[in-house]
Design a protein around this nucleic acid. Structure first.
Lengths: 239, 239
DNA sequence: CGCCTGCTGTGAATGCGTTCACAGGCAGCC
DNA sequence: GGCTGCCTGTGAACGCATTCACAGCAGGCG
């Protein structure tokens, strides 16, 4: 169990910073911001703990202040499809919150995390009242829809190699540390997780990664993936 | 080319009926309804014609008054993934309309169709003004997200047989004509289209359908699929 | 320190679905 | 009527990814 690098009490300013920084509250007026801060609370959750599961009532919206939350679907015999990783500044849990139906996926803590929690009733009132906020919510939903649609297309049209190359490129944009031509993906990421993001087996991912590592496209440094030849990798997305 | 069974001019009452009947305008006040009718127009489109393509500007929202619109993604070498079939009463084209980004998919007429068209600028103003309408838009988006998420899970966890059984069950709910124990799916539907909805090949679908037809689960009457043993078919969804 | 536990690496066998190739049927149209 | 285009049916070969089965390795913890 890893220690969290923040004081035990989350300051209101932390909440405020998260709220101001996240997509759906972006450009919010100071008065409304203070109101949102008022009606939100925080919650700590330990690595490995379940926040909610598919089918649960969706009675809250969450924001990540610190840590990492994995959103996933569970299949039979322990299989899992990772739909997304929520990082500081990200908002999640919006679908069930907004339509009042059961949760569509599982959420559990991939690291010890601190979350912002906004209760359903209050939030729904708020968006009904504030057209501006409603617009932001709509934009968040559209973004999610775009990501989903793209993913459906990838599954239908691309093979493992291309999908993996694409995922690595995306990760290098989101988490890349650039150092003279090379890009290191700066996050803990097992091959099992990578496989679960793509909806394939760990073995298949391992074999593809090894091929690329032999060809000099990638390297592995202390559990991190380094992209040595990002031009080649980019090309591998469209075979 | 098939004739359309309606007068050449679409009466305002037709528009009104569509608008009142479709999800996002459901329960709308009479005044607002009249306003929406005012700012909408209609458009005819012939079978096979493209309405918009992935990447186009999304400058309008569409509703189907009559006909059938196929929403799909195009892959390389003529491959196609059908994302949805829009029928009378359905609304589509909302993503690009709402976030102002390019179209995420193609839309083309599977039959001669009559569409309701609402321009972007006017509609966006309207939802900003009317909290109630915004809520309905949000609900539509949530519904789409749920469908997409479910589909991602199906692709990841289920094989062709289970996915096909599931699709047939869904179609029998939406388009079933019940007649003493049997359910006929009352729509024109080629095996190629069925395959494109599932993201598999036509041959694979054909083989599975033939197996079930030999086993007495299904029958084929004049281009329609009849489910003879819906209990068996339902069970086949979870192998 | 040594013992787990989880991650990585790999090879053989299997299987599901694709690709390719072709044949026959049915409907609309000139 | 015959032609053309689209749909259905089917078999053989192939290939990608899964499943299964291990082996080695690192790191955390008692």
């Amino acid at each position: 169990m890893q220690k969290i690098n923040s004081p035990p009490e989350i300051a209101a300013s932390d909440k405020e910073r998260l709220i101001r920084g996240s997509v759906i509250f972006n450009g919010i007026e100071p008065g409304l911001l203070r109101e949102v801060v008022q009606l939100s609370r925080t919650r700590r959750i330990h690595k490995g703990a379940m926040l909610f599961q598919q089918g649960d009532d969706g009675d809250a919206l969450y924001g990540v202040i610190e840590g990492l939350i994995r959103i996933s679907l569970a299949g039979e015999q322990g299989k899992e499809l990772i739909l997304g990783l929520m990082e500081p500044g990200d908002i999640f849990g919006e679908i069930a919150l907004l339509d009042g139906l059961p949760r569509t996926a599982d959420a559990h803590a991939a690291e010890d995390s601190v979350l912002l929690v906004i209760e359903r009733a209050q939030f729904v009132q708020l968006i009904e009242r504030e057209g501006r906020l409603a617009r932001h919510v709509i934009e968040l939903l559209c973004e999610r829809l775009r990501a989903n649609t793209e993913r459906l297309g990838e599954h239908a049209f691309m093979n493992l190699g291309a999908r993996l190359a694409r995922k690595l490129c995306a990760l290098s944009v989101a988490h890349g540390r650039h150092e003279e031509q090379e890009i290191t993906i700066d996050m803990r990421l097992s091959q099992t997780e990578l496989a679960q993001m793509l909806g394939v087996t760990r073995e298949a991912v391992n074999k593809q990664l090894k091929i690329w590592s032999r060809e000099g496209v990638l390297r592995f440094d202390r559990g991190r993936i380094t992209i040595a030849n990002s031009k080649r990798l980019t090309a591998l997305q469209n075979p």
